[in-house]
């Protein structure tokens, strides 16, 4: 282990439409680099086991666990975090729907929920309660019991 080559690598990450050139150890997860190198702390880390979904970001438009990817892998990919889904002023229609429907309590899972729900809404397919629940099934929430989140996503689709 001692001499394992951990030489940091310099990579350019495209996050929320902006290029960041950072020097990272290969073992640093994307979640850690987003949070601690880029200061984008909206992406939360809840398990580092790939289960809870709090760290979900969009990679090339699709939801992915940033705790299960390394930053060095991300060159050439477009990453979008909750910061990138937040308008300069006010709330996005989805965020607005979350607010209206009381779809968050402690708020820790919320960024991951919003990211997954955004990807779902972007597909433009008609949604049913069942498909929304299925799409969100990889994002755990301990506070809300999900019902108001489902309502918010369905409502946001209506409002889109």
């Amino acid at each position: 282990m001692a001499e394992a080559s951990i030489q940091p690598l310099t990579v350019t990450l495209k996050v929320n439409g902006r290029d960041y050139t950072v020097t990272v150890e290969p073992r640093w997860t994307l979640a850690d680099v987003l949070r601690h190198q880029l200061g984008l702390t909206g992406t939360h880390v809840g398990c580092e086991q790939g289960v809870c979904g709090a760290c979900t970001v969009l990679v090339d438009g699709e939801p992915a666990r940033s705790c299960l990817m390394f930053a060095v892998q991300m060159e050439g990919h477009e990453i979008v975090t909750i910061e990138g889904l937040t308008p300069e002023a006010g709330l996005s229609p989805l965020q607005e729907a979350f607010h209206r429907h009381h779809a968050l309590q402690c708020g820790f899972c919320t960024p991951g929920m919003l990211v997954t729900a955004t990807a779902l809404l972007n597909q433009g397919k008609p949604l049913t309660e069942e498909t929304v629940r299925e799409a969100l099934s990889g994002n755990l929430c301990r506070c809300t019991g999900y019902q108001f989140i489902v309502d918010a996503v369905m409502d946001a689709q209506g409002g889109k």
Partner: peptide
């Protein structure tokens, strides 16, 4: 390492300790 969805949790737990990862992505 390909998708990493099984490998990275094992790395995070330090249950897998490869000298190198060969990224085929």
């Amino acid at each position: 390492i390909a998708g990493g969805q099984s490998l990275v949790p094992l790395l995070n737990f330090r249950l897998s300790r490869p000298s190198h990862l060969v990224d085929i992505n």
